[in-house]
Structure formats: C-alpha cells, structure tokens
Simulated assay, not measured.
Amino acid sequence: MSSIFVSFCFIKTVSGGDKYVSGTGLYCIGNDVDAFREITFKGFTGNAESLVTPLEKNSIALVIGRYVYEENTEYV
C-alpha cells in the first residue's frame, strides 16, 4: 500500500546525477523533540536546472511524494 507523503525533512545524505537525486532524511513524527524517523528518497529531474534550489546535505527540504513502507524501511 502507498500513500502521499508531505513533510519538511532534514537531509542526512544526498547523491545523484544529472537525472536523479537520492538519499536519506529525517522527519519529526510528533510534538516530541526527539521523535524522528528516517526515510529513503529518490527523485527524478529532467535536468540540473529544474530544481528550485540544489538539494544539499544538512539542509531542510520539503519532501512530497508517494510513501511506501516495506520491510521496516520507509521510501518516498
């Protein structure tokens, strides 16, 4: 089963090429300050200029996409 995922995430790792970007990020799951979960993300782009700003490690980004939970791992 998949759902839509929308959250501000702290980007832990990021890598990619001309047509995609992938990595891991953390998002807050509640009002608890120390309650975070990790997601694995992958996004496709037409070219490097199509992103509003480059996605960088240790930054905050709005992540929107299809959410899938499989074998104790979250994918967007």
Score class of each variant (00 low, 15 high):
Phe36Asp: 00
Tyr27Leu: 02
Ile4Asp: 12
Gly25Glu: 02
Gly23Arg: 07
Ile4Arg: 11
Gly17Ala: 12
Ser7Lys: 14
Val33Arg: 04
Ser7Ala: 15
Cys9Thr: 13
Phe8Glu: 14
Gly25Arg: 06
Asp34Arg: 04
Ser15Met: 08
Ile11Leu: 12
Val14Arg: 06
Asp32Met: 00
Val6Asp: 13
Ser3Glu: 14
Gly25His: 05
Cys9Trp: 05
Phe10Lys: 08
Gly25Trp: 01
Lys12Cys: 09
Ala35Gln: 02
Gly23Gln: 04
Ile4Gln: 15
Gly17Ser: 15
Val6Ala: 15
Phe10His: 12
Tyr27Arg: 02
Ser2Tyr: 07
Asp34Leu: 01
Asp32Trp: 01
Asp34Ile: 04
Gly16Asp: 07
Ser7Gln: 15
Val21Ile: 15
Lys19Gly: 10
Val33Phe: 04
Val33Leu: 01
Phe36Glu: 00
Ser22Glu: 11
Ser2Thr: 12
Ile4Cys: 05
Thr24Tyr: 09
Tyr20Phe: 14
Gly23Glu: 03
Phe10Gln: 09
Gly16Met: 07
Thr13Asn: 14
Lys12Phe: 05
Gly17Leu: 08
Ile11Glu: 04
Val21Gln: 03
Tyr20Ala: 05
Phe5Arg: 13
Phe10Gly: 00
Lys12Gln: 13
Gly17Val: 05
Ser22Lys: 15
Phe8Ile: 15
Thr24His: 13
Ser15Gln: 12
Phe5Lys: 15
Lys19Cys: 07
Phe36Met: 01
Tyr27Ser: 01
Ser7Phe: 11
Ser22Met: 03
Asp34Tyr: 02
Val21Phe: 06
Ser2Met: 11
Lys19Asp: 11
Ile29Arg: 08
Asn31Phe: 00
Gly23Tyr: 04
Gly17Met: 08
Ala35Pro: 02
Gly17Cys: 06
Ile11His: 11
Lys19Ile: 05
Gly30Met: 06
Gly25Met: 02
Ser3Met: 14
Asp34Cys: 01
Ile29Leu: 04
Ser15Ile: 04
Phe5Ile: 13
